[in-house]
Nucleic acid binder design. Structure first.
Length: 197
DNA sequence: AATCCTGCCAACCGCGAAGCG
DNA sequence: GCGCTTCGCGGTTGGCAGGAT
C-alpha cells in the first residue's frame, strides 16, 4: 500500500488512508481523545497526525474504540426491543441505538439486515419474532467476540496519557506490515488505568 | 482436500442538517 | 440572508470466516 501512497503523494488528498485501521492508528486516536476529548473530527484527525478523514475517525471511535461499546451477543431482550422500536420508528438506527446502551447504530443496522430482516422475509409476517428469539439464543455463537464484551471494562479517561508504549502488546496480527488487532483484548488490559504510571 | 456458498461485520460513500463567520 | 464547513445518519460494499457440497 505504501507504493500507492508514494505514487500519489503529490497531493494532500493522497495522504488519506482508507480501509482497516491498524493498531498504531487506534492507539493514536485513543490517546488523542483521552487527552483532548471528542469533537471537531477533521481537526482532530490532522492534529493527531492520522492520515484519515475526520469522518473515518469518528466512525472508528463511535463504533469500535469507545470503551462503553458492547459488541456481539445481542440478547433476546435487546432483539425484542430492536424489533419493537423498528416497527415504531423504521430505519432510524441512531435513534434505536440510543435506547440500547452500548450498542451502536451500525451494529443494530447490521444485525437487523443480516438476521431479522432476512427471517422476516422468510416468515413474511411477525410470526418470525418467536422464531428469531429462540433461534438467536442458540446461534449467537457465530460471533467469536461475544464472550468479551467491553461492558466488563473498568475504564476511565485519563488526560495526558500520551505514551502508547505503556500499553504493552496486545495480540495482533503481524503477518503483514499492518498490525491488526482485537480491541477487546486491548481494553481488557485496562490500558488507561495506570498506563501513565 | 478443494472449491463454492453464505453470513457477518467493519468501513466507506452520499446526502441532508446544523452551526458558524 | 448566504455560503461554507463540519457533523451525523442511513445505505451500501468489500473482505473474511465458517459451513456445505
Amino acid at each position: 500500500m505504501a507504493e500507492e501512497e508514494k505514487r500519489t503523494s503529490s497531493s494532500q488528498e493522497a495522504e488519506v488512508r482508507k480501509g482497516p485501521w491498524t493498531m498504531e492508528e487506534d492507539l493514536i486516536l485513543i490517546n488523542y481523545i483521552a487527552s483532548h476529548g471528542e469533537g471537531v473530527w477533521n481537526t482532530l484527525a490532522k492534529s493527531a497526525g492520522l492520515k484519515r478523514t475526520g469522518k473515518s475517525c469518528r466512525l472508528r471511535w463511535l463504533n469500535y474504540l469507545r470503551p462503553d461499546v458492547r459488541r456481539g451477543n445481542i440478547t433476546p431482550e435487546e432483539q425484542l426491543l430492536i424489533m419493537e422500536l423498528h416497527s415504531r420508528w423504521g430505519n432510524r438506527w441512531s435513534k434505536i441505538a440510543r435506547q440500547l446502551p452500548g450498542r451502536t447504530d451500525n451494529e443494530i443496522k447490521n444485525y437487523w439486515r443480516t438476521r431479522i430482516q432476512k427471517k422476516a422475509k422468510q416468515g413474511d409476517s411477525f410470526e418470525y419474532q418467536n422464531q428469531t428469539m429462540t433461534d438467536d439464543a442458540s446461534t449467537s455463537h457465530s460471533n467469536g467476540m461475544e464472550e468479551c464484551s467491553s461492558s466488563q471494562l473498568n475504564y476511565q479517561m485519563q488526560p495526558n496519557m500520551d505514551n502508547s508504549d505503556a500499553f504493552g502488546a496486545p495480540s495482533y496480527n503481524t503477518d503483514s506490515s499492518e498490525s491488526f488487532w482485537n480491541i477487546d483484548e486491548f481494553w481488557s488490559m485496562n490500558p488507561l488505568n495506570g498506563a501513565g504510571d
